[in-house]
Computed example of a mutant assay.
Amino acid sequence: MSRPRSRAVVKPPISAVLQHYYSIQVKERAGWSKILCPLHVEENPSASVSTEKQRWNCFVCQVSEDSIDVIMREEKIGFRDAQAWAHARFGGSGEDVPQSVQGQPGRGVHTGSGPGRRSRQVRPGVRRFGSDWA
Rank of each mutant, 00 (worst) to 15 (best):
M1G: 11
M1Y: 11
M1H: 10
M1F: 10
M1R: 06
S2T: 10
P4S: 04
P4D: 04
R5D: 08
R5S: 14
R7D: 14
A8S: 13
A8E: 13
A8P: 15
A8H: 09
V9D: 06
V10C: 09
K11G: 00
P12A: 04
P13M: 02
I14F: 07
I14P: 00
I14S: 03
S15C: 11
S15M: 14
A16D: 09
V17R: 01
V17P: 05
V17L: 06
Q19P: 05
Q19Y: 08
Y21A: 05
V26E: 02
K27D: 04
E28Y: 12
E28D: 11
R29Q: 05
W32A: 00
S33I: 02
S33H: 00
S33V: 01
L36E: 01
P38L: 04
P38N: 04
L39T: 02
L39V: 01
H40I: 05
H40G: 01
V41W: 05
E42S: 15
E43N: 12
E43H: 09
E43R: 09
P45G: 05
S46P: 14
S46H: 12
S46C: 13
S50I: 02
S50E: 00
S50H: 02
T51I: 06
E52L: 09
K53V: 01
K53Y: 08
W56Y: 15
W56I: 01
N57Y: 09
V60K: 02
C61G: 03
V63R: 03
S64M: 11
S64F: 10
D66V: 07
D66K: 03
S67R: 06
I68P: 05
D69E: 06
I71M: 01
I71V: 13
M72H: 01
E74I: 13
E74R: 08
E74C: 00
E75Q: 11
F79Q: 11
A84R: 14
A86I: 01
A86H: 00
H87M: 03
R89T: 15
R89F: 13
F90E: 04
G91D: 06
G91W: 08
G92V: 10
G94Q: 06
G94K: 03
E95V: 14
V97I: 14
S100I: 10
S100E: 08
V101A: 09
G103F: 04
Q104G: 11
R107L: 12
R107H: 15
G108D: 15
G112Q: 03
S113V: 13
G114M: 01
G114C: 02
G114V: 02
G116C: 04
R117N: 14
R117H: 14
R118G: 12
R118Y: 15
R118F: 14
R120A: 13
Q121D: 11
Q121S: 10
V122R: 04
P124M: 04
R127L: 06
R128V: 00
R128D: 05
F129Q: 10
F129E: 10
F129C: 10
G130E: 07
G130Y: 07
D132M: 03
D132H: 00
D132C: 05
W133T: 12
W133A: 15
W133C: 12
A134L: 12
